[in-house]
Amino acid sequence: MALQILQTIENISSIPTLPTVIERLTRLLQNPKTSAEEVGKAITTDQALASKVLKLVNSAFYGFPGRISTITHAIVILGFSTVKNVVLTASIFDIFRNKGEGMAGFDLEDFWLHSIACGAASAAIAKQIGGLEKEECFIAGLIHDLGKLILCQYLPDEFRSALQHSAENRQLLYESEKKLFGSTHAEIGGYLTERWNLPTNLQNPVKYHHQPSPAHDNHPMTAIVHCADILVRALDYGNGGDAHIPSLSEQVGKSLDLDSIDLDALLDSIHAEVEKASVFIQWT
């Protein structure tokens, strides 16, 4: 059954794709001789995307309100990898915003806020514990439940029954999905991140955010997203389709050293990050 679900998805030709500029950027950034102008040129070939990128870098979210006028300027100030993350974020938002209708028990506005808040919370945790790139953690959190969008759009009957099962049996959505059709939104989202050729530090948090284990690569990033998902559910930022909260993995608690973390300060900083992410409120 699980295989069947993945095969169904594999055969859907209209499944969302990332703009080709992302792949070009990845290739350009692998070459140390690439100049800011070349990267700028690659981005501006997609005018709509370029203007969104400028809007983002000039928002409170990236901390340069209204001061960056061109893509090349942005690269000089923010660096290649941040700009690439901004382009990726903008592209993902475009995909999220065009995903049609929700359904009973799965409101797209609520889901959207759950995703943004999870991204913001991931960034806040990364900031507090240090050592990981904040913008990348934001993206990982933002896309962690991507599989739900795919289910909602391409397998609506299966998804509807999982939502119902989860509400009636007070189970987490991924548990109901596993039970009803043998696969989960984490696997399906993970499959999409592979198809998009995203780096494994973005693939793995999507795949394992409900089953984090130090045995998988990029465990720190996955641990952050696992914890962020729990915190934003507790704070009721949006709604990802189920009413309960998963239990924090003990290993995640250890690897984030949750015993010595100042949770009050963390919750404040999550709120501040969510506020900054409100630039996405006008995303169209």
Partner: peptide, 22 residues
Amino acid sequence: EKFAKTMNNPYMEKILNAVYRY
């Protein structure tokens, strides 16, 4: 109600209390 199934986990207790205060 939200945390119902997680109360045997000390981490979750800590999170619940912090979120409640917050």
